[in-house]
Design a protein around this nucleic acid. Structure first.
Lengths: 206, 206
DNA sequence: CCTACCGATCGGTAGG
DNA sequence: CCTACCGATCGGTAGG
């Protein structure tokens, strides 16, 4: 059983490492993902863990990719096919709020977690994160702009300002849930998103 | 010069340690505040650093108190005397946005940073943080409720929802500035705060 | 507040 | 992917 494994096995190993790493990162951050801890949790040797990636930084980058992939699967993929503009934008808000409210990982959305961890640090993790978030913001700005042009949002809407606000409100759900125990943060964030979009609240269902 | 110092000197030393610790924490988090790093930065011995606090956890708690104190000085103290309700609430939004836009520390607001770092972890730092943020949220909810009762905010306002939203928008400025290079995040956040309060935007000054 | 030290853990390598 | 290591750093203590 010992010794080198096939490329297929290596892929499975890599995947299980990254799944564990992602889980750890959402609670303790990407710096909390230590090689020794992964080895212990997975019943592997340290060299077996790091050998898959080469260095801690590569491991962090791969873990970040994993977190970004999960975000995309849960928030973007389900609504991507919808009509650009307000329809898709509203669907994004819903899937986003739903994701943060029912997170895949223990510590919530890893992207929000890592954003705060690496926003002020130099290095490749920071750069990869910034690039991914810039792409996401461009996506938001595009749909907001389309919605304004279609007359579905107020003409004086500032797309950058709205995109920033949606992002901030989504990120805040993490902390609200874990620090205040707020179970309603999903609907709170969604309501606030509608407010910054300049859309009337849905009628009360009581 | 060597040997024990007076109680006064010890206070000065403690203060300089905490100032450096607070600066580090806003960039690298409270876990990045290591005893060895503080000793090097301050030209002290490790035992000289930790001797002031007893343990890393006490050092983290003291650093958190420092960050909370700065937040209070910059956001709450300048507006505390104002009339409770909408007047003070709007002033809070402005000092809050101004603080996050012109932060005292390199990495921005330490409270937001530590919130994300410790929201999912157990321990005394988490508990102290949660207690302080709950107090802050109660302050916000009180002024929101007063404003609603005075008829200055819509009658169907949900104070908890609005308090959550203000918090999220303020926290988001950190990441926007450091990750996207947004220099307008202060005015963006303020505009979004007004939106979630259900207040019309100020007329454009162009 | 210093020197000198402790065991534990960090990221990482050699060699198989 | 393992064993066996490496130097560096971690939090912390003894003793002055």
């Amino acid at each position: 059983m010992a010794g080198r494994r096939s490329a297929q096995d290596a892929l499975t190993t890599r995947d299980s490492i990254l799944r564990t790493a992602a889980d750890i990162a959402t609670v303790d951050g990407l710096e909390g993902v230590t090689i020794g801890r992964l080895a212990t949790d997975l019943g592997m040797s340290k060299s077996g863990v790091i050998g898959q990636f080469g260095s801690k930084e590569e491991l962090q980058l791969a873990t970040l990719e994993r977190l970004l992939g999960t975000f995309r699967e849960r928030v973007w993929d389900p609504v991507q096919h919808l009509e650009p503009g307000l329809p898709r934008l509203l669907a994004i808000c819903e899937s986003w709020a739903d994701y943060e409210g029912h997170p895949e990982f223990e510590g919530g959305c890893g992207v929000a977690q890592v954003s705060f961890e690496f926003d002020g640090r130099p290095g490749r993790v920071h750069d990869a994160l910034a690039a991914a978030l810039k792409r996401w913001r461009r996506t938001l700005v595009a749909d907001i702009t389309t919605a304004v042009e279609a007359g579905d949002l107020p003409a004086d809407t500032d797309p950058q300002q709205v995109a920033f606000s949606l992002d901030a409100l989504a990120s805040g759900m993490n902390t609200a849930r874990l620090l205040h125990g707020d179970t309603d943060s999903g609907s709170w964030a969604l309501a606030a998103m509608h407010a910054v979009l300049g859309i009337d609240r849905a009628p009360a269902r009581s």
